[in-house]
Amino acid sequence: MKLTLSTLAVAAGLAFAATSLSAQAETIKIGVTPGPHAQILEAVKPIAAKQGVTIEIVEFSDYVVPNQALDSGDIQANSFQHAPFLDNQKADRGFKIENVASTVTFPLSIYSKKYKSWNDIPEGSTIAIQNDPTNGGRSLLLLQAKGLIKLKDGVGFKPSPLDITDNPKKLKFLEIEAAQTPRTLDDVAAASINTNYATSAGIDPSAIILTEDAKGPYVNIIAVRSVDKDKPWVKVLVDSYHTPDVKNFIEKTFKGSILPSW
């Protein structure tokens, strides 16, 4: 009789454990832009799956829709943007979205198919930059950091071409959607292109004529809705991303063009 009761107790315990595990299991949709962010999430997926969280990766072709989709609940998280961009989106659009973890840094670079160095860029040339305030501003700040233009004092992270106070080469700026900047390279002297879009477009890194320093404020992040930030799956997602396996994947795959930032 004791054996039977023990057996029943074990069986009941196993059933409870199975029910608890089932209750903890989650399937979450994470928005990314094509290229490195999607590749890194593929490396995160099996690690999260071992902890009961199934990741479905949803790719978006621009920088605006992923936050709209997250705010509306169509996806549960996104991993594609740096913190200043999210702050700008929240201020402009009222999104109730939170930064829950740092991921990687993509040093912004300026590429050219026509010229081997910035010094070769002729006076009056057209430079393509992103048309969203944060990334376009970042491009102008890169040019200022290299001593090539000057901007008004106090412009913060979102200067525009209207804020340029000194432009020795009399450069013209073509503002275009970030995802489309690689396509301008045949038509402009140079283009500022976010690393993920340059990688997706197969642009040779040898075309880089200017690049940001490795350290800066533009660390990419994982974002979730404010109402979800304390849910267990968020911790699983972050912990799965912040693992030595994922760090090694980033370092071996991208060879320094993308840097782990945790």
Rank of each mutant, 00 (worst) to 15 (best):
A83H: 05
S102L: 11
N88V: 03
F85R: 00
V100D: 01
Y63V: 10
A77T: 02
V65H: 06
P107A: 07
A101I: 10
S109R: 14
Q68Y: 07
A77N: 08
I75G: 06
Q68M: 13
K96V: 04
V65C: 13
Q81E: 05
V104A: 00
G94Y: 03
D92Q: 11
P66D: 10
D87Y: 05
L108K: 07
P66Q: 06
S102M: 12
A91C: 09
G94L: 07
D71E: 06
A69R: 14
Q89T: 00
A101K: 03
D87I: 03
S72W: 03
L108R: 03
D87G: 13
F85I: 01
L86H: 03
A69D: 02
D87H: 09
S79M: 14
A101F: 01
Q81L: 10
D62W: 05
D92I: 05
V64D: 12
V64L: 15
K96S: 13
T103C: 02
K90P: 04
T103M: 11
D62V: 01
F80W: 07
N67R: 04
I110R: 05
F95G: 00
D71W: 08
F95Q: 00
F106G: 03
L70F: 02
L108D: 01
I75K: 06
L86Q: 03
N99Q: 04
S61E: 12
Y63F: 08
H82R: 10
N67I: 04
D74Q: 13
K90S: 04
F80G: 03
V104K: 06
A101G: 08
L108G: 00
N67T: 13
N67H: 10
L108T: 02
F106D: 00
S79F: 09
F80C: 06
K90V: 14
A69N: 11
A83Y: 15
N78S: 11
I97Y: 00
Q68C: 05
V64I: 14
F106W: 10
D92A: 13
P84E: 02
T105Q: 03
D87R: 13
K96D: 12
T103D: 07
L70S: 06
S79D: 11
Q89Y: 12
A91N: 15
V104S: 11
H82N: 14
P107M: 15
I97W: 07
N78L: 15
S102F: 11
I97S: 05
P84I: 02
G73L: 04
I110E: 05
I75S: 12
S102V: 13
N67K: 12
N99S: 03
P107S: 14
A83S: 10
S61Y: 04
L108V: 13
D62H: 15
S109A: 15
S79Q: 05
V104F: 09
A83I: 08
S61D: 11
A101T: 00
I110Q: 05
A83W: 01
T103R: 12
L108Q: 06
F80H: 15
S102A: 15
A83T: 14
A91H: 01
Y111C: 01
R93Y: 09
G73M: 13
S109K: 11
S61A: 14
Q89D: 06
V65E: 11
V64P: 08
S61N: 15
E98D: 12
T105N: 08
G73H: 05
Y63M: 10
D87C: 01
S72F: 15
G73D: 10
D62Q: 11
T105C: 09
E98R: 08
N99I: 06
Q76D: 13
I75R: 08
F95N: 04
A91Q: 12
P84C: 03
A91M: 10
Y111V: 00
F106M: 09
